[in-house]
């Protein structure tokens, strides 16, 4: 969105506040809206097609969701052209998110101490 790149005094930068630039981005927003609608239709269609493999069903559904989320983040949230500080924040977030999810799932088959299964320690 308003990156205020115009105020960076860098002549190589496009003025992100100019009406011409905003008009161009509006076309992009509408195109991405169309892609998101299409992606949703595709996701639902995949459900009704019914793929026998659970692995592929989950993979395809999450892949489509990731592509849709990528468009929202890159275009609507303007991450395709953002300041380094924001990328730094997001890299840290991804690192900790992977840690959070990874450690949780890693512990999936762990039993708490003193758990008994059929009368024996697990």
């Amino acid at each position: 969105m308003s990156h205020d790149h115009s105020s960076s005094h860098d002549p190589s930068h496009v003025d992100h506040n100019s009406p011409e630039y905003i008009q161009k981005t509006i076309k992009k927003y509408l195109a991405v809206g169309g892609i998101l609608f299409g992606g949703t239709v595709l996701t639902v269609a995949m459900y009704y097609v019914h793929i026998p493999s659970v692995f592929w069903t989950v993979t395809i559904a999450l892949l489509i969701a990731t592509v849709k989320a990528g468009f929202v983040a890159a275009v609507f949230m303007h991450l395709s052209d953002e300041r380094k500080m924001i990328y730094g924040v997001l890299i840290c977030t991804v690192f900790f998110l992977i840690g959070l999810m990874g450690l949780t799932l890693w512990a999936m088959n762990d039993f708490p101490f003193f758990t008994l299964v059929d009368g024996k320690p697990a």
């Binding site: 998101l36 996701t43 995949m46 459900y47 559904a61 999450l62 969701a65 989320a69 929202v72």
Partner: peptide
């Protein structure tokens, strides 16, 4: 976008 397939479809 992630909730919809996870809750409704999978």
């Amino acid at each position: 976008i992630f909730l919809f397939p996870i809750i409704y479809l999978l």
